[in-house]
Structures are given as structure tokens and as C-alpha cells.
């Protein structure tokens, strides 16, 4: 792999393509993944390269996509099932939560379910309410499923490869806003570049405040950190990368140093990622806490169509800066 910047969409495409070359049991299925070349162009060229056996267009049948992947995985295949957007995965929630996540458990380990659900996620571009969700935490609610949410090209590449190779079911979300964003890739040609499931990453070091984020939230946190640095506040940015398992070790290490925390996420604020991280911090790091933990999330409203109020609902770097300034 040449060391150069590639868009996150391309990094995901490479990971998927390489894993399909590595293992014949890996196949992709979903709406428009084959002849249309993928709604988000992640599977561009796959049909020509791998053929209809391994690149399978489905009807608009999310319940069947969700459940068929479970059966195929139990039987020995390694499906990568694409939900065109995560909004449509709600239709498959039963298959995901009741079967992908639980068949191993309720048959006490008799079966493995090595599947990956890929889903484009996020708000913006006036997509309106029903197409504007970043509901990763909903899926992270269920034991039995892992949830990966990369924030850049290299992470997406290594995380998807690990997700495909692992024997557990993984929901892998791809922020639509990050698809075109270029980022560095592994320096060497390395088809085995894997980012372990549940391992977070420090994206920026700093001693004054810890910003905990994932996916698009990492972008806002990094922008905010640069802005804060101009005012002499050094923020440490912890990218958890996975919502399940949660690498709280990394958060605790950072928090012991900074004693302050702002949690940043694209998702809705109630019963949220931010709520979970804040609760874990107060339970486990109470003695290190010097200020209230702040949360920056979307506003508690469905997303409207009209641009100005849509942007009002979304978190951004300035909201992160404002939250930090309240506690440093």
C-alpha cells in the first residue's frame, strides 16, 4: 500500500477488496452493491472483479438482509452485508439484536456468527428527519455484537479488516461526511494491517482537558483542540473507535492526567454515548474529577430539512470549544 492520502471511502473499498481476495468465503450483499456499483461507491468495480456469486444485489428487504447474513455466517460463510444507510437498519433491528447478537449465546456457544453489517451513518446535507440518524449507540446496547465507528481512512481500513476476520458479529458504521475525506494510510504495503477490536487511540495529546469522541465527533474534537491551543488550552483527543467493547482504560489514563472531560458525539443526547462515558467516569474516576463532565451532542430534535435550523441541531467544533471553556 503506497503511503499516500486516500479518501475514507477508498480505504474501506481497499480493505473489503483485499479481504475478498484473501478469503473466498467473504462475500458482499446489499441493495445496489453490484450493478449500481454501491450507493456510496464502496463496492465500485466489485461485480466485474468478483462476479455475481460474491457480489450480490438484494431487493429492498432489510429484514431478510439482516437475518440471511446470520444464517450464512452460522453455516460458515463470512458475509459483509451493507445497509445503504443506517436508517434502514432499523428495519433489521430484530435480526441484528435478537439473532446476530444472540444465537451464539442462546445455543451456549454452538455457533459462530462471523458477519459484518456495514452501514453509512450520519446527519447533514438536508437529508431530512428519517434519513438523518447517527444511532450507533442503539446498536452498541446489545451484548453479543461489536460496534466499530472509524474516524479516518487508516482506522477504517484496519478496523474493517479486523471486523471481517473476527468470528463475532460486527456492526461497522461509516460516517457519510467522512467518506470523501482524505487521510494517510499504512506506510508499507500491508494486507495484514489490523486494528484490534475494542482498541481506542489518542489522536492528539494534551494535558488540560480530555475530549472523548468517535467517528465524526473526532473531527470536531480535533478542530476544537486546534482552536483551544491558540488560547493556551491543550486538549487530549481520545478516539474510542469502537463503541463495543469500550476502551475505557484509555479514557481513564487520559482523565487521570487532565481531570476534565468533554464528550463529543454526532448522536442524540438522551440515553447516549455521552451519558455512558460520563457515568463510567464518575463511578471509577471520582477522585480525579475536578470539574463537571460536559457533553456535546446533537440537539434533542428530529432533523429538519431547512439548512439553517439543520445546522443549528448539529454539534460542531465551536460547541466543543464552548463546552471546554466552561470547565477549564
Amino acid at each position: 500500500m503506497p503511503a499516500r492520502n486516500v479518501a475514507m471511502r477508498e480505504a474501506i473499498r481497499r480493505a473489503l477488496r483485499e479481504e475478498m481476495h484473501r478469503d473466498d468465503n467473504v462475500f458482499v450483499m446489499g441493495e445496489e452493491v453490484a450493478y449500481w456499483q454501491g450507493t456510496h461507491r464502496v463496492t465500485r468495480g466489485f461485480l466485474e472483479e468478483f462476479g455475481e456469486r460474491r457480489v450480490r444485489d438484494t431487493p429492498i428487504s432489510e429484514m431478510a438482509i439482516g437475518g440471511l447474513a446470520v444464517g450464512a455466517a452460522m453455516a460458515g460463510l463470512r458475509p459483509v452485508a451493507e445497509f445503504m444507510t443506517i436508517n434502514f437498519a432499523f428495519l433489521a433491528l430484530d435480526a441484528i439484536a435478537n439473532h446476530a447478537a444472540k444465537v451464539r449465546y442462546f445455543f451456549d456457544g454452538m455457533f459462530k456468527v462471523p458477519l459484518v453489517y456495514r452501514a453509512a451513518s450520519g446527519w447533514g446535507n438536508q437529508a431530512t428527519a428519517s434519513h438523518s440518524h447517527a444511532p450507533e449507540p442503539i446498536f452498541a446496547h446489545f451484548p453479543g455484537l461489536y460496534v466499530g465507528c472509524p474516524s479516518n481512512s487508516m482506522d477504517a481500513y484496519g478496523m474493517l479488516k479486523a471486523s471481517i476476520r473476527d468470528d463475532n458479529p460486527v456492526l461497522f458504521t461509516e460516517s457519510i461526511a467522512l467518506y470523501p475525506k482524505p487521510g494517510p494510510m499504512p506506510a508499507e504495503d500491508d494486507g495484514d494491517f489490523l486494528i484490534p477490536i475494542g482498541k481506542g487511540d489518542i489522536k492528539r495529546e494534551g494535558g488540560d482537558v480530555t475530549l472523548v469522541a468517535y467517528a465524526r465527533g473526532v473531527d470536531w474534537a480535533l478542530q476544537a483542540a486546534r482552536q483551544l491551543a491558540r488560547d493556551g488550552v491543550e486538549a487530549e483527543v481520545v478516539d474510542l473507535r469502537w463503541l463495543r467493547p469500550l476502551d475505557m482504560e484509555l479514557v481513564y489514563q487520559s482523565f487521570k492526567k487532565t481531570n476534565r472531560c468533554v464528550i463529543v458525539e454526532e448522536s442524540l443526547p438522551m440515553y447516549s454515548f455521552g451519558g455512558e462515558i460520563a457515568a463510567l467516569l464518575q463511578e471509577n474516576m471520582f477522585d480525579y474529577m475536578d470539574a463537571p463532565i460536559k457533553r456535546v451532542a446533537a440537539e434533542d430534535a428530529p432533523l429538519p430539512y431547512s439548512k439553517e435550523i439543520e445546522l443549528l441541531a448539529l454539534p460542531d467544533a465551536q460547541k466543543v470549544v464552548n463546552a471546554v471553556k466552561e470547565i477549564v
Binding site: Y105, R165, D166, D167, N168, I197, G198, P245, M248
Partner: peptide, 21 residues
């Protein structure tokens, strides 16, 4: 808790991991 997940070398776990089963 047993058999919530398949044991896997690809999964990073620490004493403070949450939701790893």
C-alpha cells in the same frame, strides 16, 4: 456471561474494557 462472544485474538481487552463479554 459465557459464550456472549467467541474468544478472539483480534479483540483488545483490558481490565477496564466495558462491554467485551
Amino acid at each position: 456471561m459465557r459464550n456472549t462472544y467467541v474468544s478472539s485474538d483480534l479483540v483488545h481487552k483490558t481490565a477496564a474494557s466495558v462491554g467485551a463479554g
